[in-house]
Write a protein that binds this DNA or RNA. Structure first.
Lengths: 341, 341
DNA sequence: CGCTAGAATGTAAACGCTTACATTTATAAA
DNA sequence: TTTATAAATGTAAGCGTTTACATTCTAGCG
C-alpha cells in the first residue's frame, strides 16, 4: 500500500504538499496539485486513516450507540444517521448496547476509545446521573429519545406525554370511557411520560383514573398478550386498550382475536411508535407516530454544528408526536355509550 | 488524556513493559504488572487506538457492510455479528450500502480505508466480477447470502433453491395445482434460485409451468399488492400464491383481503424469509425460514479463523431453509381438487 | 534591476503506540 | 563461587500522517 512518501517522491514534491492537496488546506499551485493528484492516482494511494487521526487528533467518525440493533426503530435511525453523516463526509461508528446497563456503558467506552469526534447516544438503561457525569469525559454527545435536566440542549426528544395524551384523547373523543392502559416500564422516562399523557386526557374528560385498568408492561409482545388477557379477565366493561408501544399492541391484538373480540367494533386498540409493520396488521393499527428518522437527522445536525463547527443548521430539541388513525380504533360500542349517559 | 509514557514514568518502568502488560505479550513479573496496572488505573489511562493500530497494523475491527440498514433481516444480522465479535474482543465497523451499486462500492472503500482486519459483506448490487476482482485488494472478506463460483469458501449462503422448492412443495402436497408465483428481481441470484426451486417442485409433481402465473417483482410491499391484483385479474383458477419474500406477501395479503378472498380457505399464501413480523400478520404467514442470525454468526467464525487465526471454529457454508407452516396456507379448496381429478 | 510581500513549497518535529533487539537480572547447575 | 541460560526489562526505530515554521519562488513596484 502506497504511502504519502511515495506519492511525494513520484510527484517530485514534499510530504507537506501532498498533505495539503489531500486536505485542501494551504495554497497549492494548480500545476503542482495536478502532479500530486496524478501520482496518487497512479499509485492507487489511500491515506492511512490511523496515521491521519493520530496526527490530526480527529477521526471524522461519529460514534452511534443504539440500545439495541434489531427492532424497526433502530433500522430507521441508523439509516437516517448514516445517510446524513455521509453527506458531510463523516462516518458512523455503530455500537449496540443490547439493552443492558453494563453493555451500554461498555459500548460508550468502546466508542470513546475509538476517538470519535462526537457521539450520538440512544440509551435506555443508563441513568441520568451517569450521563451527566460523562459530560466532561466524553467527546461532545447528543442523545435521542431522552430528556435530561441540565443537558436539555443535548437531548432530541419526543413529547411523549403529548403522544400519550393523543392516543387516549382519540378514544375519549369517540365515546370510550372505560379505557385500559398497558404501560412501559415505569422507570423509563418515556414510558412514564406516555402514561402521564393518558392520565391527563382522562382528567380532561372528567374521568377518574381507574387503577385497576392500568398495567405495567415491558414493551415486549408476549407481555402485551399477557396483560391484555388480564384486562379481559377483569370482566369490566372495557371498550378500548391503549398500549404504550406497538409491540405490546400486537400481542394484545392476538389475544383479543383469539378470544373472539372484534376490533374495533367490540374493542378499540391503540399502539405507539408507528413501527413499520403496524400498518401490516389486520386490522391496521391506530398508533402514535414517533418520527425517528427526523429526530435522527436532527441529532446529526447537532453533531455537525457542535463538533465540526458547521453553520446554519437548525437544531430542534423536542419533536411532536402525531396520531395515526387507522382501523384498530373506532367509536365506542353503542350499548356502552348508552350505559354512560 | 494520559499516554503510555506517563504510565511508564509513574510505574517506574519502560514503555515496552507497559505495552507488554496491556497486550499480555512477553513476560512480565507479577509485581511489575501490578505496578503498571496501578499506574494505569490511577491515571485513568486509555490507550489511543489510532496509535495502536498504526504501530501494530491491525485494528481489531471487522468491517460489516449491509446492503441496507432497515428491514428486519439486517437488524438480526447486525445484532448477531456485533454480539459474536465482542465475545472475541473485536469490534464491528458498520456501513450501509443503501441498496445501490455505487454506494456499496463506496462503502467497501470506506471500510478498507479504515484498515479493517476483515470484512463481512452483505451486498446485493455488486457484481460477482467486481467481488472477485476485490479478492487481492481487500482484507480477507466473507459474504453473506451470496454464492460465487471461485470463492465458494468465502460465501455463507442459504440454499435458496431448496427454500423455493419447499414453499411450493408444501402447497402441492396439499392439493394445490394452480399456484402463482411472485418472484424477486431475476438478476439477483437469490431471487432466481427461489424461482428455480418453485419450478422444480412443480415438475416433480408432474405439473407444467404456466408462465402466465409467474410475475417478476422487486421484493417490495407495493409490488406484492400490484402483482397479486394482476394475478386475480387473470381470472384463472389460482388457489395459491407463493411470494419470493415476506414483504411482497404482506402486500399480496392486503389485496386478497380487500377483494374478499379468505386466506387460506379460498386461497393460500406463502412467503419467504420468516421475517419477525410475519407471525404478527393475520392470518399468520406460512413462510420459509432464513436463518440470518446463524449465518451471521458463521460469518464471524470465518473471520475469526481466517483473519485472527483462531482455531477450532467450525465453518459451514450452505445453510438449509425450513418451511414454517402457519395459518396462511392450507389445503386446496375442495371444488378445485375435484376439478383436477 | 533590486527589493519586498505574498504565495508556494519544504523541513522536521510531533502524534502514541508496538516490537525487534540489546541489555540486565535472576536461577540453577557445576 | 562461577557460569550458562533463561527471564525480565529497556532502548530506540519505526508506523504514515499533520502542521508550525523555515525557506524559496514569483510578481509587481520604484
Amino acid at each position: 500500500m502506497a504511502t504519502i512518501y511515495e506519492v511525494s517522491k513520484l510527484a517530485g514534491v514534499s510530504l507537506a504538499t501532498v498533505s495539503r492537496v489531500m486536505n485542501n488546506s494551504g495554497k497549492v499551485r494548480d500545476a503542482t496539485r495536478r502532479k500530486v493528484l496524478d501520482a496518487m492516482e497512479q499509485l492507487d494511494y489511500q491515506p492511512n486513516s490511523f496515521a491521519q487521526s493520530l496526527a490530526s487528533n480527529r477521526s471524522n467518525c461519529v460514534g452511534v450507540l443504539v440500545s439495541e440493533m434489531h427492532g424497526p426503530i433502530f433500522g430507521e435511525m441508523l439509516t437516517a444517521i448514516d445517510t446524513e453523516l455521509h453527506r458531510s463526509g463523516k462516518f458512523a461508528l455503530i455500537a449496540g448496547g443490547h439493552n443492558d446497563e453494563e453493555k451500554e456503558a461498555e459500548a460508550i467506552r468502546f466508542l470513546s476509545s475509538r476517538n470519535c469526534d462526537a457521539l450520538i447516544l440512544h440509551v435506555e438503561a443508563l441513568s441520568n446521573e451517569f450521563l451527566l457525569s460523562m459530560l466532561d469525559r466524553l467527546p461532545p454527545f447528543v442523545m435521542i429519545n431522552r430528556e435530561i435536566e441540565g443537558m436539555a440542549d443535548r437531548c432530541i426528544s419526543l413529547d411523549n406525554e403529548h403522544g400519550g395524551y393523543l392516543a387516549t384523547h382519540s378514544l375519549l373523543e369517540q365515546g370510550h370511557t372505560h379505557i385500559a392502559y398497558i404501560s412501559g416500564p415505569q422507570e423509563w422516562a418515556d414510558a412514564s411520560a406516555r402514561l402521564a399523557g393518558h392520565n391527563r386526557a382522562l382528567t380532561e374528560f372528567g374521568l377518574e383514573l381507574d387503577e385497576r385498568l392500568v398495567f405495567e408492561g415491558d414493551y415486549l409482545v408476549p407481555t402485551g398478550s399477557r396483560l391484555a388477557a388480564a384486562i379481559l379477565d377483569l370482566e369490566l366493561p372495557v371498550t378500548a386498550i391503549v398500549c404504550a408501544n406497538d409491540e405490546m399492541a400486537v400481542g394484545a391484538m392476538e389475544v383479543l382475536r383469539s378470544r373472539k373480540h372484534v376490533i374495533p367494533s367490540d374493542i378499540s386498540l391503540v399502539g405507539y411508535d408507528n413501527v413499520r409493520w403496524s400498518s401490516f396488521l389486520n386490522p391496521k393499527l391506530t398508533t402514535v407516530n414517533y418520527p425517528v428518522a427526523d429526530m435522527s437527522r436532527m441529532a446529526v445536525n447537532w453533531v455537525l454544528k457542535q463538533a465540526y463547527g458547521e453553520e446554519g443548521l437548525p437544531v430542534r430539541n423536542v419533536f411532536e408526536p402525531e396520531l395515526i388513525r387507522r382501523e384498530s380504533s373506532g367509536p365506542a360500542p353503542v350499548a356502552d355509550r348508552m350505559a354512560n349517559l
